[in-house]
Design a protein around this nucleic acid. Structure first.
Length: 729
RNA sequence: AGCGGGGUGGGGUAGCUAGGAAAUCCCGCCGGGCUCAUAACCCGGAGAUCGGUGGUUCAAAUCCACCCCCCGCUACCA
């Protein structure tokens, strides 16, 4: 069977993150590798989506050309795919000349078939930026669900695709100026003509995942409108028609055609036929995140229908999102785990394993470093790698080759049955695009292997009856082979290693899935095995909550009364090479004289807020026991701007901290005694405390464990004694 | 408050669309075993009002209604 796999194109305005990998590239790759191993003819492509305004904006910001920007990210992201072992037949790019050629041809074909027409339209124009705004750069209220930050192309909230004109109170996303609408001539794609055909096509797809059906159904319910496929921009594919010299093809139209152009380019480079996949019988699978569903279940199929004689999607597999410690991954807000960095620190198979086990197939999954490390250390290394090594090293040392299988007993038969069962179950799950279930099935075999090995105790057998021991090891190696082969789509790098340890010379990927159950040839020499992975060692403990904080020492420069509020001061702070103005509710507790010139602590990365008309950039930290309020300060004066540490760890705190989030942090004033801190409860501090700190009051930040705040040898203290357990706010 | 996603033993999860006898798996905890293996692995145990209330049903974690709580995006705010 021929299988075409299209994976959503990463936008070349940033670096791919773990959410993209777990949501699209990894499942696609597992699927591709599996299908190749069962003998299917697979073509898998993707590439960088390089056109559109976000790229031009980045370019403007950096004073570079758009091409330079996309070259940079294309290079980085290609490397990521490579290192991770995502086995694309081609990872292409939309700024390539052949892509542009294919898009133009596609465009003309649609024109010829009567699905394109010209119309003058009113377009959002920003008078301040002096340009027409692309849909994404108009924000406003969604007319369907009332969401106030809907983009002009799609509402992130309800998933409907929109036209900027639909938005209520549209404004420029860059400068927030209300947009004007100006006339401009554009080309429209007659989606509405295809409505009936689309509906009946989709009705057959009852095997699609629920989330895909739901999103698609929602989309259809609001009716299909014709869409403009050209824009007033200058970075994109030119329009092959007169009078459109200063316009370009709109990026969504151009990007999806990438599936076709990449196939053609692959065929051209390798002397193969792309028609085999697009015009002859072939099943088309698409892998993407849930935000991309309508483009793949409605728009792209409609474009293909309008084009004629090209294969439509067979299945569209969309995953949910990955969250980072409870927050949505976001390129712009820098929340998340970026692949280049991740790949610098961890082996690709570790990342792939974690990704497969936690794939967000049916619901969002929350990433935490703690979970990442424990999953890898305990399951992948502790159970799998350890099993493989204990078997291989035992076999190598005692036999040096594959021992023959003698008489088998009940347990041996069970082991062989387990292998068969794993093959069958994993096949079913993978073919049904349920990868999480598939790898869990594989883990069952790992588990069984450990039990089998322990029950058989070959180290004893070996002394008593070498032949029996040989049978046990033979079956163990059989399991190792099965794990390597069946695990290969998930863990290609380590499977390959295991394959070699088993005495094979060639690549595991030259073999078929079914060879996972093939009997090993007795007498074949084994290779000396090494550990597959090393456990992840924490160089230093990671403090998730503390890492979100950025607390610094500051000196009060001036204090003024807030013109509009009884309790508030406006405090100007010196932070060394920076200055800050904060609004503080301290009037009741401190006079202006008491504050001026003294040292305080500021929560530096708190999101700015306007308090009674005055903007506050951060907040002063003080302990409060209900009666008294005591500002925090270092025990000795320090250079303003110095960062506060907790148990020796300087916080990352690069991101803005939401006030809501800050309120969740537990920080309290404590009495310090030996290695104890007494606050609301008694805590044990495992950080070496200095003698001069004992008996003082200090401040504890509660993360996974209580952390004491200090700067080097200087303790952070409240400026007067308050009841221990007083909360810091 | 609006929209979306959730609430299952201490933590994280499976099961929920097609209701059925002992609620899955991983970690942690307690006790034991083994020594081939990366303090690993194996066995046993404790531990769950399946967020709450009401309903449908012979039978509900699973279906329906209402409510509570948590998370994200908004709004408010020190």
């Amino acid at each position: 069977m021929r299988i075409f796999i299209g994976v959503a194109w990463p936008y070349a305005n940033g670096v791919v993150h773990l959410g993209h990998v777990m949501g699209a590239y990894l499942p696609a790759d597992i699927f591709a590798r599996y299908n190749r191993m069962i003998g299917n003819d697979v073509l898998m492509v993707s590439g960088s989506d390089e056109h559109g305004t976000p790229v031009t904006i980045t370019a403007e910001k950096e004073g570079k050309s758009p091409q330079e920007i996309v070259d940079r990210y294309h290079k980085i992201n290609s490397e990521v795919m490579n290192k991770l072992g995502i086995s694309f037949d081609l990872f292409y790019r939309t700024s390539h000349e052949n892509h542009e050629k294919v898009v133009k041809e596609f465009f003309l074909k649609l024109l010829e078939n009567g699905y394109l027409y010209e119309e003058e339209m009113l377009l959002p124009y920003c008078p301040k930026c002096h340009r027409f705004l692309p849909d994404r750069y108009v924000v406003g209220t969604c007319p369907y669900c009332g969401y106030e930050n809907a983009h002009g192309d799609q509402c992130d909230n309800c998933g409907r695709t929109l036209d900027p004109k639909d938005l209520i109170e549209p404004r420029c996303a860059i400068c927030n100026t209300p947009t004007e609408f100006r006339k401009s001539k554009h080309i429209f794609f007659a989606l509405s003509k295809l409505e009936d055909r689309l509906i009946s096509w989709i009705e057959e797809k009852d095997f699609w995942r629920d989330n895909v059906k739901r999103f698609t159904y929602q989309f259809l319910k609001s009716g299909l409108k014709d869409r403009a496929i050209t824009r007033d921009i200058n970075w994109g594919v030119e329009i092959p028609m007169e009078g459109y010299e200063d316009k370009r093809i709109y990026v969504w139209f151009d990007a999806v055609i990438g599936y076709l152009s990449a196939s053609m380019e692959w065929a051209r480079r390798n002397g193969k036929s792309w028609e085999n996949y697009w015009k002859k019988e072939a099943k088309h699978f698409y892998f993407l995140g849930k935000d991309n569903i309508p483009f793949h279940t409605i728009i792209w199929p409609a474009m293909l229908m309008a084009h004629g004689d090209l294969n439509l999607p067979y299945n569209v597999v969309a995953n949910e999102y990955l969250q980072f410690s409870g927050r949505k991954f976001s390129k712009s807000k820098k929340i998340g785990v970026w692949m280049p960095e991740l790949l610098d620190n961890f082996e690709p198979d570790m990342i792939r394993f974690y990704g497969a086990v936690n794939m967000p197939e049916h619901r969002d999954f929350n990433f935490t470093w703690e979970n990442f490390i424990s999953t890898i250390n305990e399951t992948l290394v502790g159970k799998y790698a350890n099993l493989v090594y204990r078997i291989l090293s035992f076999a190598y040392r005692n036999f040096g080759e594959i021992p023959p299988r003698g008489d088998v007993d009940e347990l041996d038969r069970e082991a062989l049955k387990m292998i068969m069962r794993t093959r069958k179950k994993m096949s079913e799950y993978i073919e049904n695009v349920e990868f999480k279930k598939a790898i869990k099935e594989w883990l069952e075999l790992v588990n069984f292997g450990n039990i089998y090995f322990t029950k058989k105790a070959p180290w004893t057998q070996c002394k008593e009856n070498k032949e029996k021991c040989g049978t046990t090891i033979n079956i163990c190696l059989q399991m190792v082979q099965a794990l390597a082969v069946f695990g290969a789509p998930f863990l290609p790098f380590s499977s390959e290693k295991v394959w070699k340890y088993l005495g094979n010379e060639d690549s595991i990927f030259e073999h078929q899935w079914n060879e996972g159950i093939k009997n090993l040839p007795a007498g074949r020499k084994l290779k000396e095995p090494e550990h597959l992975f090393h456990k992840i060692e924490l160089e230093e403990e990671r403090y998730e909550k503390w890492n979100q904080m950025d607390i610094r020492v500051a000196r009060v420069k001036s204090v003024e009364d807030h013109p509009d509020a009884e309790k508030l001061y406006i405090v100007k702070l010196d932070l060394g090479d920076d200055e800050r103005t904060v609004v503080a509710g301290l009037k009741k507790y401190y006079s202006r004289e008491e504050l001026e010139g003294r040292e305080v602590l500021i929560l530096y990365n708190l999101e700015p807020a306007t308090l009674r008309g005055v903007k506050s950039h951060g907040m002063l930290l003080a302990g409060d026991d209900g009666e008294r309020v005591a500002l925090l300060k270092p025990m000795e004066d320090l250079k303003p701007g110095t960062k506060v540490m907790a148990n020796g760890a300087e916080p990352a705190g690069e991101k803005t901290l939401k006030f809501k989030k800050f309120k969740k942090m537990k920080i309290e004033v404590v009495d310090i005694k030996e290695n104890k801190a007494i606050g609301a409860e008694e805590y044990t501090l495992d950080f070496p405390l200095r003698d001069e700190w004992l008996g003082k009051q200090g401040v504890v930040f509660h993360d996974k464990k209580p952390l004491i705040l200090h700067v080097g040898e200087v303790l952070i203290v409240p400026d007067k004694r308050i009841t221990p357990g007083g909360q810091v706010r």
